[in-house]
């Protein structure tokens, strides 16, 4: 079936098997392998991308469900120069092996947007924002992205350094 996707502001018209996930469409059919497959079951977050500005696990979604959607992957977070978040991940050592990193970056980008829009989380005191980027809020909101190298101190420091400036 034909699926039209806009990925990182570029249009793609793809002829895909209906079983192809959004993640595999991006990785294997478009060739943007920055988004990673860690579990293919929505358990690790390595495949996190932004769809119409919101973070989702691309492995849990079929490409066919996204006809006409605007998608941002890790490759689209920077335009020539590194984004402040990407630069902060390097400075704070927010990764080691790097495999979960694209997902962490997309997830953090979406998360900062969510918190700025006043979305509550499991650890929020009330359902009405605004919310501070406290350690508890940050950790809770980023807990869908596993890092087995366990760079959480670096990841959190990097997100915080950008989030506080935003």
């Amino acid at each position: 079936m034909q699926i039209d996707l806009t990925i990182n502001q570029k249009s793609y018209s793809l002829e895909l098997d209906s079983r192809v996930t959004l993640l595999d469409a991006i990785r294997e059919h478009v060739g943007l392998t920055g988004s990673k497959k860690g579990c293919d079951h929505g358990q690790c977050g390595a495949c996190t991308v932004l769809v119409n500005g919101r973070r989702i696990n691309a492995c849990l979604s079929l490409a066919a469900m996204h006809d006409g959607d605007e998608i941002t992957t890790v490759e689209g977070l920077s335009d020539g120069e590194l984004s402040p978040l990407q630069a902060a991940f390097i400075k704070e050592d927010g990764f080691q092996c790097g495999y979960c990193t694209p997902g962490q970056l997309c997830s953090a980008t979406g998360m900062l947007q969510e918190i700025s829009e006043g979305w509550p989380s499991h650890v929020s005191d009330s359902l009405d924002g605004p919310y501070e980027l406290s350690e508890a809020e940050l950790s809770e909101r980023m807990s869908g992205n596993l890092c087995r190298c366990s760079c959480y101190p670096g990841i959190n420091a990097a997100i915080r350094s950008v989030g506080e400036k935003a």
Binding site: R27, E28, L32, T33, G34, S35, K36, K37, T73, V74, E75, L77, S78, L82, Q86, F89, I90, K91, D93, F95, G98, Y99, T101, P102, L105
Partner: peptide, 21 residues
């Protein structure tokens, strides 16, 4: 010192085993 491969890793350009087919 920062990791020299860091830029590749944060931009999604570091290629792991299943990539670069």
């Amino acid at each position: 010192a920062d990791r020299p491969e860091g830029v590749l890793k944060v931009t999604g350009r570091a290629t792991y085993a299943a990539e670069d087919m």
